[in-house]
């Protein structure tokens, strides 16, 4: 029982940290987007993700039974305790790469959250159902933008192709099962991530075809983020910014 509980804690951190880290990166766009409508849309997505992070991390804190709140988990853990996918912590760089990352993630997140909506764990199912509606909208939007920017001009096609080439080696991490995933699968809390890979592949390949983009012919996938073994150098800088106030003024109420 204890094992399932701690596996569930890890599982919840993975969900929460994905949402938190991508939400934070997306929030960096505020005031900087190519048009006002995009600024508003990106802020919406960041808000959805931060909202989701709060729900997952709250539940994680309760499972852990160490008295940590969602905010404690978000603002007082160091990089090696984060469990997000590496792709999500990479810097935004240009708008094309931001959109490409969203698309690669959203195309995973939609079937994943749909599956979690059927979870044997009621709370997981509730959070997933709420997040699933948001993810469906995010995917619609990122897919449309990938197609538009891939098709648009020579320059936009080149930028999107570069983004895809850069991010492709990070996309596979989401599907690499480990013991936590197997424990969750055994308890019918979640499917194995690898089970979703075929659906994801069909989705991204059909979109890339419409966008005149070609993913690299490689199955290689960086890993280390969701298991917390080895993050990129970028996460530490992101946390230094994000956690500044909580670290500089411990114990204050904000």
């Amino acid at each position: 029982m204890r094992d399932t509980t701690s596996a569930l804690f890890e599982f919840l951190l993975r969900q929460g940290d994905n949402a938190l880290v991508l939400g934070h990166r997306t929030s960096e766009w505020c005031g900087m987007a190519p048009v006002i409508e995009e600024d508003i849309a990106l802020a919406n997505i960041a808000l959805d993700l931060i909202g989701q992070a709060k729900l997952w991390l709250e539940y994680a804190g309760e499972q852990e039974e160490a008295g940590r709140s969602a905010n404690d988990l978000a603002f007082l853990r160091d990089a090696y305790d984060f469990r997000n996918l590496l792709m999500l912590e990479l810097p935004n760089e240009d708008f094309g790469r931001t959109i490409m990352r969203h698309f690669l993630f959203d195309a995973f997140q939609v079937p994943w959250l749909e599956a979690l909506s059927e979870s044997s764990d009621q709370r997981v199912s509730d959070i997933a159902q709420k997040a699933s509606k948001e993810a469906t909208y995010h995917l619609e939007r990122s897919e449309y933008a990938v197609i538009g920017l891939g098709d648009g001009t020579e320059e936009s096609n080149r930028r999107m192709q570069n983004a895809l080439t850069d991010l492709w080696p990070f996309a596979g991490e989401a599907f690499r099962d480990d013991n936590i995933d197997r424990a969750m699968h055994d308890a019918a809390i979640s499917p194995l991530p690898s089970m979703l890979q075929p659906v994801w592949k069909i989705k991204v390949q059909s979109t890339f075809q419409l966008a005149y983009l070609t993913p690299p012919d490689s199955e290689f996938a960086h890993s280390g983020g969701r298991i917390g073994f080895r993050h990129t150098e970028h996460l530490g800088h992101m946390l230094a910014t994000m956690q500044f106030l909580q670290r500089a003024y411990p114990g204050a109420t904000w």
């Binding site: 006002i36 802020a43 960041a46 808000l47 931060i50 709060k54 978000a74 603002f75 106030l245």
Partner: peptide, 20 residues
């Protein structure tokens, strides 16, 4: 990016979004 809690971050983001 430096808001001190998840709630404050969301409030500020929503406010700046309103301005847009």
């Amino acid at each position: 990016t430096r808001a001190p809690t998840l709630e404050r971050k969301a409030n500020l983001l929503a406010k700046v979004q309103d301005e847009a």
